[in-house]
Design a protein around this nucleic acid. Structure first.
Length: 292
DNA sequence: AGACAGGGGAGTG
DNA sequence: CACTCCCCTGTC
């Protein structure tokens, strides 16, 4: 059984923090489909064991070569992000396959993680390739040309996203995927936005979780709320303003900042921050978050 | 019962 | 640009 010693890596939070939906958990093992493969992985302290893929795949998929200490240091000037890192150190971004990411995040719109997983599982089981590892069977997400029509996708539970999925599958082919993989952040984002069902949020998710543009700063309802609370004095700043600020303020690792803030804010929203601050257990930057 | 959710699109001012 | 409404479906 291949093993790998890791540092600054937490498998559970990495898998379950809303960037990866195609997995099954069996005891301490995660069975994950990604990059058109099935693999299994578990973590015990600083050691991970895995099956189904090689070490290079694991390192690449979980971005184990990202220097989290360095990333943390470069974001440390922001006390809120610093706090989020100290709570969740080891959370890493993943590197999804491009089309799988597009499908996954189109399905993610206006629904929660359990439901995203249910829909993707249904689509994979109906039209994706069967894969097996040690007797455990899963199904890969279908390639664009293997995706069925809107009506069938609707039956699978995709709802109004069915039309987007089908239109996206008609727009996307291997040539486009290859071109996207060679583009810079702005070109890739602009091109992704031209795909039906892909708006600003989904485009940035794909840029961050698949294409590896760590400066991408996707804004969903949690990040929107969190950014308004902590960086805009609770005002109703538009997503455009939040994004501009986020990228300017957090810089090249804005995506990591976003991921840690997201993970932490979901566990610990503003009310609890304030309670902790009132106890003197937390320090806030002056002028921010004074009351509310 | 009726609103709302981990968005996008189309339409309007 | 910024704002509104609708879209599937489950849940409170």
């Amino acid at each position: 059984m291949p093993r790998l010693t890791v540092r600054d890596f937490d498998l559970r939070s990495t898998v379950e923090c809303g960037q990866l939906f195609t997995y099954a958990r069996l005891g301490e093992w995660y069975y994950i489909t990604g990059q058109q493969k099935l693999f299994a992985i578990r973590q015990r302290e600083r050691e991970v064991e895995y099956r189904g893929v090689d070490e290079g795949f694991i390192r690449r998929f979980f971005r184990l070569d990202d220097d989290l200490v360095d990333i943390r240091r470069s974001l440390k000037k922001d006390p809120i992000v610093a706090r989020a890192f100290s709570e969740s150190m080891g959370l890493r971004l993943v590197r999804l396959e491009l089309w799988e990411a597009i499908v996954g995040f189109i399905c993610s719109q206006a629904c929660n993680i359990p439901r995203i997983r249910t829909v993707l599982k249904a689509i994979a089981e109906a039209w994706g390739g069967r894969v097996e590892l040690d007797g455990f069977v899963m199904y890969l997400l279908p390639r664009p040309q293997a995706l069925p029509g809107e009506a069938k996708l609707r039956e699978a539970g995709a709802g109004f996203r069915a039309r987007y999925l089908k239109q996206a599958a008609e727009r996307v082919d291997d040539a486009l995927l290859d071109r996207l993989r060679r583009m810079d952040y702005h070109s890739a984002r602009r091109t992704l936005l031209s795909i039906p069902g892909v708006g600003p949020k989904i485009a940035d998710c794909v840029c961050l979780f698949s294409l590896g543009f760590l400066a991408a700063f996707p804004i969903d309802t949690w990040i929107r709320k969190m950014m308004r609370d902590f960086y805009f004095h609770g005002s109703n700043a538009t997503d455009q303003r939040i994004r501009d600020f986020g990228q300017a303020h957090f810089g090249e690792y804005a995506g990591y900042a976003q991921q840690y803030l997201y993970a932490f804010y979901r566990r610990c929203p503003l009310e609890r921050w304030n309670a902790a601050a009132a106890d003197g257990r937390m320090h806030f930057p002056s002028g921010r978050n004074a009351e509310r």
